[in-house]
Amino acid sequence: MTNQQLQDLINPWFENLAFTEEATEFLTVTVPKEKLHDLAEKLKSNSKTQFDYLFCETGMDWGEELGVIYHLRSTTHGHEMVVKVTTKDRTTANLDTVCDIWKTAELHEREIHDLFGIKFNNHPNMEVLILPPNWDGYPLRKDYVDEVNMIIR
């Protein structure tokens, strides 16, 4: 399925889906965070899309917003797309987990939780994975400062 066909298929499913396709090879859809889990579930279960392979889950810090980018592929149809979700809440950022849909997300979400401070609701084991338990701050956020270890030239 081409990106345009995918867009036409997915667009009517939910309201407020924002599609962008500039400077990237993938069809990109930005979804409101309340709809994330529903969309993800539908993307996987719908027989025409069948996005069953989450090959990349990226945490993002756009300055004001935090978010997660999901790169999806369908092993049966071979098409790919990107789902973005953002949250404006930087102090108690939380999003719905997708690890019940794609199991690999469990570890990826723990990593994102460590490095971006996004909490994933309904995640079975939301504990620190990479950082030491007493670490302060979220290292991959843009406003993170560590004057000792970060030398910025």
Partner: peptide, 9 residues
């Protein structure tokens, strides 16, 4: 199924 779900490659 698990292999796909776990995103192994």
């Amino acid at each position: 199924e698990d292999a796909i779900s776990y995103g192994v490659s």
